[in-house]
Write a protein that binds this DNA or RNA. Sequence first.
RNA 1: GGUUCCAUAGCUCAGCUGGAUAGAGCAACUGCCUUCUAAGCAGUAGGCCAUUGGUUCGAAUCCAAUUGGAAUCACCA
Length: 596
Amino acid sequence: MTKIELQIKQAITESLVALFNIQIATTEVLLQPTKAEFEGQYTFVTFSIAKLTKKSPEDTGNLLCAHLLANFPVVAKANVVKGFLNITIADHLWLQTFQEIFTDAAFGTLPKNNIRVMVEYSSPNTNKPLHLGHLRNNFLGYSVAEILKAAGYDVVKANLVNDRGIHICKSILTYIKLGNGETPDTTGMKGDHLIGKYYVLFDKLYKAEIETLVLGGMPKEEAEKKAPVMLEAQQMLLKWEQGDDATISLWQQMNGWVYDGFNATYKSIGVDFDKFYYESNTYLLGKDLVNEGLEQGVLFKKEDGSVWIDLTTDGLDQKLLLRSDGTSVYMTQDLGTAELKYKEFGCEKSIYVVGNEQDYHFKVLKLVLAKLNKPYAAGVYHLSYGMVDLPSGKMKSREGTVVDADDLVQEMIDTAAAHTKELGKIEGFSEQEAAELYQKLGLGALKYFLLKVDPKKRMLFDPQESVEFQGNTGPFIQYTYARISSILRKAKQLSIASTQLDIAKLMLHPTERDTIHLLQDFPDKIAEAANVYAPSIIAQYVYDLAKQYNRFYTEVSIFNEENQDLLQFRIALSAVVAGVIKKSMLLLGIEVPEKM
RNA sequence: GGUUCCAUAGCUCAGCUGGAUAGAGCAACUGCCUUCUAAGCAGUAGGCCAUUGGUUCGAAUCCAAUUGGAAUCACCA
């Protein structure tokens, strides 16, 4: 709640007591933004209290209206339409609000709350390069972490790398067979792409072998299990688990290539991590927890020795936690990793940025931890995001319909370059400055496109639309920032100082008032975005702010203004808007250019 | 089949703690650059908020059912 809202609510609370002797907590008073077609900024709906006043909503509104106007200078004007009381806030209050925002260097950063939270995101497999789906994950995770920081949390960004398992063995195996010792250096390929190539080749080999077997008369299902390359891959996994030197060293070398590739991608898309976990180190964890659970009687053992948890009373099934041979499954290691994270960082909250195809898994994880009485169970939160669809349908690696992350980023940057040149906007740019601009615009377009949608929802990635630079896009917001920067440069050049403002008595243009109105909402938006882990709230907000500023920009002239106080105010307003745009965009992981 | 999620303009999305005539962007059409960056601004047109019932002064929003779509239900990860 902003200060202005609080004042209005208090005024209404007091008026209700004075007029009707009705006691309502100030926080219970509901205000909503006034619709554009009516005069005012805040609307109080009287229907619900009309029952208490025993008068019609309209009469209640009229009485309240008169009382507010007579007793509260905050309310400059007010009108009643049916049961809706529309309130216009006095200009001096907007100006005072602006003055406070203007002098608050930390505006947009909420006070520290001393809550530590871990955000785990990215968590790639080391057998193939990142694709479009990973981009949504990475942008989301990074942005949520930044938003939580701004909201006062102590944030740890974590990446749990899936560096072991049968899928990695498939790549290694094919590399041994067909690789001829080639390396990223000898081929000029990024390490992750090189390994990805062998992962794809494995699939080809595998399919060919199945076909041969089937032609030889074997049923397909059996062939899928008995194809020689598959058996070899399984052998290799076994050797890996036994610590076979040759296998381990090749695994390390190939993973090293992949990490170089990932790091390059992470760097280019601007995400980072405080802590890396590797499944090769954590996959054996969790068995202790399972034993604990057995002792506590929370879990049970079947005759074959496998360990289960019964979640049927919670509306779920029975879930396996240890195989009959005593080895871990996915859930086991996730239990162990959760324990490890908590021991290392003591996070009150632990957020897992993972696609919604794993909803069931995380539901179970949280339940099991709760049943084991783990203090951190309640803090486990699965930030379940929807899949990214292409106009052609779902992405499938095997069918080659995957959009590669590196390729896509490069395409976006190229498009930004072409578009910028076409508009003739790079006069006076050095080559390096131009390259940096294209990078900012291309990535800005991509990130904004993926982040403006509610994370929970499945979304469509239309390549055509994603490279649009008009309307509700990253570059539109960046453009607004660049425009303001230009104004601020000119103001500086003209030595117009706007540090000491004398603005209390100014009359506001509607676009100025509306802009201040939006600015004051910023801290609430950060809090809201942090509460529901939704960068889309920030994206929507910063778009609205940019749009609003552009209205001001076209309707009001700044440098032709003769009133010096007003001139200074407009420059100060522009500066604050630029600052909030920049902060918002950084929360989304998007950089803003000074010129474009 | 069980469970969970989704359905709003031609397209992509907001709005969902119930409130006035449901908002943006793209696409279409019309205006606005002698003036701070037109990657902009203003306007026109476009809607049975999947369907049906319920709750109430009031429902896109809450509840139920139906229809259509998706995910998941492995001793895979």
